[in-house]
Simulated assay, not measured.
Amino acid sequence: MGYLEPLPFFARPKGAARQMARVQLQAQLKWPGAGIRLQSALKVSKETSVFRGYRGEDPVVVKKFWDLSARRGFVGGTVQAFRRFERLGAHPDFSVNRCFASSGHLGLVVVSFEAGTPVDKLLKQTAANRPQILRQCCAWQSWAGQGEIIRSALPSNLIEAEIRTILGASARHPDAALLAELGNELLRLLPLLDGQPAARAPGHPDFAPRNLILRPDGGVTAVDIHRSGTFFQSRQAAIFLVSKDFQSECAEGSLLFGLDQSEMLQFLAQSSVPEDEINTVLVFFIGLTLLRMYSTKPRRGRPMKMRRRRIRAYLNDLRRGVGIRA
């Protein structure tokens, strides 16, 4: 019998076109009868690239995890998360996109493309019913968070390392001094939260408006499900609120910790954030999310000025001891 040598792993190609060609070939060899045809690149990065195409007649999104050491974990976590949502059963108003195929060896996941309008784009429309959209998003999160709620201490060492990593990578940021000021305030605040249990529950690992789709029938579907487990509810709320406001070039109402006060209170009235975390853990995670998002998305002009204003408003409210709820 002849000896079959294992196929070599090639380095990640440069450029969207070459990456898409590589992933197209791998998908055809792995699933020859699936009829997967890639048409365009939605995202290209060193860690993950995302492509849109078809699986037969079904529109799909194909994710490619490039890191050899982590791809099996990423794919496995994605598949486990989808299985967990399958166990919740069908719901007329809430869903997640479907997983058609996966390969941990190749770092590939094939999921359904969901028709509808992403919530982040919907919120930019002047005629959008923003209170209704917030209610629907909170209702989706409530459905997705079914299961046991665990209360555990914050992983202070990991969070401190996260903050210091962000600051270390932000030395050349146009607002490096402001980011350092925010990061140092968070490092000062973190020890004060030691010993306070925070709620964790199942849900979406990145509960942001861009990952929620308002379907044509009025329901809500979530996309980019890539990890299973439980997540701090206060951190998920902070991700949603900061992501919602961070793209705006102006603020029409009052700011509270750098965010739209009216919509924050509307959201919290319907969210699952525990009351005893709102003025402590949630406030901290709002600051951490502002730090993370501003450090990775520097922009010129009005958006950057507005983001700078939000961070300064956050720092001002934090130092004055302002409460979100009386």
Rank of each mutant, 00 (worst) to 15 (best):
R227P: 07
E148C: 08
L179Q: 00
G183I: 05
G195I: 04
S170M: 05
R227Y: 11
P202N: 14
N211E: 05
S170K: 01
D206L: 03
A171E: 13
A176Y: 04
L154K: 03
S152N: 13
S152P: 06
A176H: 08
E162I: 07
T165H: 14
H226W: 09
L186Y: 04
E148G: 06
P155E: 10
N211C: 05
A171W: 13
L189C: 15
G203C: 07
A201D: 05
E160D: 13
G183Q: 03
P209N: 07
F207Q: 05
A177Y: 13
A222R: 00
L182M: 13
G145S: 15
S170L: 04
D194E: 10
E148D: 10
P216C: 07
V223S: 01
P216M: 06
S152W: 12
E148P: 02
G219I: 04
I166Y: 00
A198G: 08
A161K: 14
H226V: 11
R172L: 15
A161D: 14
I213V: 09
L192R: 14
A198F: 05
G203D: 02
T165Q: 14
R172Y: 15
G195P: 04
H226R: 09
A180C: 10
P205R: 13
E185F: 09
A161Q: 15
E160M: 14
L186H: 01
D224V: 07
L167Y: 00
A180N: 09
H226Q: 09
R215L: 07
P174E: 12
P191Q: 08
L193T: 00
L214A: 04
L193Q: 03
L179T: 02
L186T: 02
L187H: 05
S152F: 14
E160I: 09
A180F: 11
T221W: 01
G229F: 00
A169S: 15
E185W: 10
H173D: 09
E148W: 11
D194S: 11
D206T: 01
G195V: 06
N157S: 14
G229Y: 03
I163G: 02
A176T: 08
S156G: 13
H226C: 09
A201E: 05
L192W: 12
G195Y: 06
H204K: 08
R200G: 00
I159M: 09
L186A: 06
T221K: 00
Q146S: 13
I150F: 15
A208E: 04
A201N: 05
R172V: 15
A222G: 07
R210D: 07
P155I: 09
I159G: 04
E148S: 09
I150T: 15
D217K: 04
A180M: 12
E181T: 09
E160Y: 06
A144L: 05
D206R: 03
R151C: 10
S156F: 14
L158M: 10
P197C: 12
L192P: 08
I213S: 02
F231A: 10
L186I: 08
G219Q: 00
A198P: 00
S156M: 14
F207W: 06
L182F: 06
I149N: 12
